[in-house]
Amino acid sequence: MRIFPALIVDALRTLLRSALRKPATEKYPEEKPKIPEGFRGRHMVELDKCVGCGLCARDCPAGAIKMVKVPGRKGLGVPVIDLGRCIFCFQCAESCPKGAIKPTNIYSMTAYDPGDLVLDFRPLLLPSAKKGQDELGGQ
């Protein structure tokens, strides 16, 4: 048998490195992962910007967006997003002429009931709702 220095040197180096470093795996959920900037997570719809054109619903490849009429608002209403169908391509953000839909870095969207996965921002329109409550709807 030949001796294969490449492997032996690597084995020793890897052993040393692994002894000094923390494991390659992540300790989720004890430690939350670092989400890079621009991650395509859960949507945020800024209803102030939305004009109700419905382009997001029309272009959505998964049929996840429905326009729901809201009294007192122009156009087709506001988008309601079913995260259970969403494929997170963010074509909606691309189609939106006003830039009202944006991805956030919220990655954990598990729910017991599929109905809880519907992202409905309409409560934000109520006068009593506080702005910036991005945990509303869905969670």
């Binding site: 890079p36 900037e37 621009g38 991650f39 395509r40 494929i87 997170f88 391509c89 963010f90 074509q91 691309e94 991805p103």
Partner: peptide
């Protein structure tokens, strides 16, 4: 890939007429 496109596997990076970001 995640840094570039926003997701590890399905990149949704190419768009008709260019790239997404």
């Amino acid at each position: 890939m995640e840094m570039l496109s926003g997701n590890r596997v399905i990149s949704s990076f190419n768009r008709i007429g260019g790239v997404s970001r």
